[in-house]
């Protein structure tokens, strides 16, 4: 445990831990809304923020947060009003954001090393002010994802019904988008902008292999997130491998293991459910309520 003596490793572990908690906590709502790749899009847009931070010599983390939040609000607006051409507009936003970031970093005289530390993470170089920023942002993400879990669940599950229960659906959608943007910048230093989405989506997908409820999926996904980020960070310390890539590969490994374990589990559950059904109860089947044109009897 000698790594705990180094300040850079302490910062790295705390950042990794916070990302392990926050990324799946937001990701679960994105997966529920079937917008699993939204985190990826925000990551691309955030690149422009990093570039601006370099150009203006301000903190890339805060600048990336500002731009990612703006970008996510814009994405939400495109989703409302875009309708048919929405996906094209989103594509332009994503790639424009990435290209803009690369261009700005170049203009600021930055090197490829700077660029890749944001694209793929650079956990061991997290500074004290960045650490503070990550803590503040993570606290915001947890406040939203846990405090408003019932509202966010309702909106993500069935937007139309949520509106009829009087929930402020647009405000909640915007809040989800903004929270996702904040999470992206929290995770930026740990796994990098290009791999952020993996930590939001894969732990949730892995947790689903075991769970039947939203609450359990949430808890298991966060547990997986924390396990892979912390163990990935420690592995990278001993093995000199890039932590971001290690964490993402570990997450996918967790998904594969859980999927392999879950298949016999699901079968056993199905058998138990069949056995629990009383003997006289016929297997449920759907009977058409009316006769259709194809039912007519010829004469």
């Amino acid at each position: 445990m000698d790594f705990l003596n180094y300040a850079f490793m302490q910062r790295a572990l705390v950042s990794a831990l916070l990302v392990g908690i926050t990324a799946p906590a937001v990701g679960i709502y994105l997966v529920q809304r079937r917008q699993a790749l939204m985190g990826d899009g925000i990551g691309h847009v955030a690149m422009t923020g990093v570039g601006l931070g370099f150009l203006l010599s301000t903190s890339p983390v805060w600048m990336a947060t500002a731009v990612a939040v703006l970008g996510s609000v814009l994405m939400e607006l495109i989703r409302w009003y875009g309708k048919t051409r929405g996906d094209i507009a989103l594509a332009m936003l994503f790639y424009g954001g990435m290209a803009g970031g690369v261009m700005l970093i170049n203009l600021a005289g930055g090197s490829n090393a700077n660029l890749s530390s944001y694209l793929f993470g650079s956990l061991s170089t997290v500074s004290q002010p960045e650490m503070t920023a990550i803590c503040v942002l993570a606290a915001f993400v947890l406040l939203v994802t846990l405090g408003l879990r019932r509202q966010l669940f309702a909106v993500s599950q069935d937007e139309e019904f949520a509106r009829v229960t009087g929930l402020p659906v647009r405000a909640l959608n915007l809040l989800t988008a903004v929270t996702a943007a904040v999470t992206v910048t929290v995770a930026m230093r740990v796994v990098g902008l290009l791999l952020v989405s993996a930590l939001m989506v894969v732990p949730v997908a892995a947790a689903q292999q075991l769970s039947r409820s939203f609450t359990a999926t949430f808890a298991i996904a966060v547990a997986i997130g924390v396990t892979v980020t912390v163990s990935g960070t420690i592995t990278s310390y001993y093995q000199y491998v890039p932590p971001g890539a290690t964490i993402v590969l570990l997450t996918i490994g967790a998904f594969l293991v859980l999927t392999a374990l879950a298949t016999p589990l699901a079968r056993r559950r199905a058998r138990a459910a069949a056995a629990a059904r009383p003997a006289g109860d016929p297997a449920e089947c759907s009977i058409p309520a009316t006769r259709g044109a194809t039912d007519e009897v010829g004469v």
């Binding site: 019932r150 309702a154 019904f161 039947r212």
Partner: peptide, 20 residues
Amino acid sequence: AGGVPATVTEIVSAGRLSRT
């Protein structure tokens, strides 16, 4: 359905939000 599993109770609870 949503992209994440949900129980019967969780779905029905969403309808109660207007009273909370």
